[in-house]
Design a protein around this nucleic acid. Structure first.
Length: 584
RNA sequence: CGGGACGUAGCGCAGCCUGGUAGCGCGCUACACUGGGGGUGUAGAGGUCGCAGGUUCAAAUCCUGUCGUCCCGACCA
């Protein structure tokens, strides 16, 4: 492609609205332009990078035995009503009525395709002999983000690869899940990303039912609990800590229980300020309804309760914060003054709770808190649980080494779905004994544009982007230094056409611009291999080549033609593939 | 949806407090010189100051409303 025939609007200054590197660089390098909050145009360079990523995704999905198809983005709203996801999605689901004659048809723009694909499969599959089956598509998804942000990382319209597997047994599902998991590792490695498979929520199937694939990045939205020593990685909802139940006994330093008025101080922050104490000295008493039964959950004041852990500890199917009325019944006080002492319901506590000497808690009376509360003397615990979010420094559940919290960009998610959608939409199969069962599903998503944004976010220097060869919009950039010199232009044209004929993705900077402009743009858009043709070199019978990542250029002889360039590209591809550590 | 900031030429910004002919840099157009890291000169083009209403002889500037964009938080199958 000739530079003058395409659209690469590079920007010298940093756009005011962009804060994070990927957003700034993608704008500056002419990859994207914003249409409105949460909706971006991909310009030729950006779109080519996306297509490269999509192609890698296709190759690996096909190799993993999945079949590509294409489903409508326009979907009947009724499907979402049948799976109850109209409510679950809420304002995220973009919906509207479309006039058809004198009727209005309620529709939605697909935020994902579980409903559509399950509906499809329910009509096509009826026997266990047709299973397992995995299908996928690469398609634009629509989710109304209440607050789009971070440029192209969080938008209301984005390109997603979504795959769905259908199987007749959990064993079949497990096998497909492992295959998808490996395909994902290969995809992200081939794209040149440093990625982390992270344990995520366990679904209805239980066990290792879900992994998120994260790119570690300071500007990532998600928090990952990570242990360098053991490789343990889990998201905040899921992460266990290696803490154990401590000895539960009254502290020898226990001071006399004291009741203190704390008018209108209901939050940890307010009370700690009012009493001049640290939040870590306080016990937060949260009243939950576990399958309808009230339970008091004790968490240290400076910690975050984790509902998933609470649900598992109680062996409940549903857990939600109790309503005002329940709290009033259990604590004899309005919300904000609950405490373990004398509370009228079951109590469970986090591991850290018995360790707090002379704690401060609600007094189960309006506008009152208790000081010097101690376990054993003032309230009783048989055991303790891991009920809070992991924090940096907590022991790793595998190695016992301190955990760290790293931020990440979610680029992929694999999930054992189970039969939620197949039951709701009547997608069944007949087994060998003519018994009907709902098909068992898995779903597997990749944010294709996040692959590109993730690379921009993590691979750049002060001059601009640094693409790996596998995703680079063009592999080679040919720069004739002075377009007025006939010999320079003829030579450059020759290299351009020969490289193109050899199947290399080559961009030809045929602009009549100064060298500085071309070099700076070259660094900004980050094409991996640069070939410079100038008068001085030609006099010596040489042209200059330089890798974007290299410090210095190398001269190669004109006589050699494009052969050394093709060799260098091939060697670099091998080198990148080796370095990426692509699993088998 | 709560909190904060900002809307002036394609981009980055000044002017606003204290109302009185809309400016700077980059980019763009033409010509000339120049030609290995955003070059120089000359001459130009381009703006209903986000939008609406109000105050005033007079509004980019003051007031009210509204729309948009960004950031923090809530939310995110």
């Amino acid at each position: 492609m000739r530079w003058t025939n395409t659209l690469i609007p590079t920007i010298k200054e940093v756009p005011a609205d962009a804060e994070i590197p990927s957003h700034q660089l993608m704008l500056r390098a002419g990859l994207i332009r914003q249409l409105m909050a949460g909706a971006y145009t991909y310009l030729p360079l950006g779109w080519r990078a996306i297509q490269k990523a999509a192609q890698i995704v296709r190759e690996e999905m096909d190799a993993a035995g999945a079949a590509e198809l294409h489903m409508p983005a326009l979907q009947p709203l009724g499907l979402f009503e049948r799976t109850q996801r109209k409510e679950a999605f809420g304002s995220v689901l973009i919906q509207f009525n479309v006039p058809r004659g004198n009727r209005l048809i309620p529709m939605a723009l697909g935020p994902t395709h579980e409903e559509v694909v399950t509906d499809l499969i329910s009509h096509c599959i009826s026997s266990y002999k047709q299973l397992p089956l995995t299908v996928y598509q690469i398609q634009t998804k629509f989710r109304n983000e209440e607050r789009p942000r971070f440029g192209v990382l969080r938008t209301s319209e984005f390109l997603m690869k979504d795959a769905y597997s259908f199987s007749s047994s959990v064993e079949q599902l497990d096998e497909i899940y492992d295959r998808m998991y490996r395909a994902y590792c290969r995809i992200f490695a081939r794209c040149g990303l440093k990625y982390l498979p992270v344990e995520a929520e366990s679904g209805p199937i239980g066990g290792d039912a879900s992994h998120e694939f994260m790119i570690p990045a300071d500007n990532g939205e998600d928090s990952i609990v990570y242990c360098e020593a053991s490789g343990y990685a889990a998201n905040m909802e899921r992460a266990d800590t290696g803490r154990k139940t401590p000895e539960i006994k009254t502290s020898p330093n226990a001071a006399a229980l004291e009741k203190k008025a704390t008018p209108e101080a209901t939050s940890i922050e307010q009370v700690s300020k009012f009493l001049g104490c640290e939040p870590s000295q306080m016990i937060k008493t949260l009243i939950y309804l576990a399958d309808g039964e009230p339970v008091a959950v004790l968490i240290r004041g400076d910690h975050e309760a984790n509902e998933g852990k609470i649900r598992r500890a109680l062996e409940a199917t549903s857990v939600e914060l109790a309503d005002e009325k329940t709290i009033q019944q259990v604590t004899s006080a309005p919300t904000g003054f609950a405490g373990p002492v004398g509370i009228k319901c079951k109590i469970i506590a986090d591991h850290d709770i018995p360790l707090i000497e002379n704690a401060i808690t609600g007094a189960n009376a309006a506008d009152m808190h208790l000081l010097n509360v101690n376990v054993g003397r003032d309230y009783q615990l048989d055991t303790t649980y891991d009920l809070r979010n992991a924090e940096a420094g907590d022991p790793c559940p595998k190695s016992g080494e301190p955990l760290s919290i790293v931020h990440g960009i979610e680029v992929g998610h694999v999930f054992k779905l189970g039969t939620k959608y197949t039951e709701a939409l009547d997608a069944n199969f007949l087994d060998e004994k003519e018994k009907r069962h709902p098909i068992i599903m898995g779903c597997y998503g990749i944010g294709v544009n996040r692959i590109v944004a993730g690379l921009a976010e993590t691979r750049h220097d002060e001059k601009g982007l640094i693409w790996p060869l596998s995703i680079a919009p063009y592999e080679v950039l040919v720069i004739p230094l002075n377009t007025n010199e006939e010999e320079v232009m003829q030579t450059a044209e020759r290299y351009y056409s020969e490289l193109k004929a050899a199947g290399v993705d080559v961009l030809f900077d045929d602009r009549n611009a100064r060298a500085g402009v071309k070099f700076n743009d070259a660094d900004l858009i980050g094409i991996p291999y640069r070939i410079v043709i100038g008068g001085k070199g030609l006099k010596n019978g040489e042209i200059e080549t330089k890798w974007r990542t290299a410090e210095n250029a190398e001269m190669i002889a004109l006589d050699a033609g494009i052969a050394p360039i093709l060799e260098a590209l091939e060697a670099k591809k091998q080198e990148e593939y080796q370095a990426a550590n692509v699993p088998a």
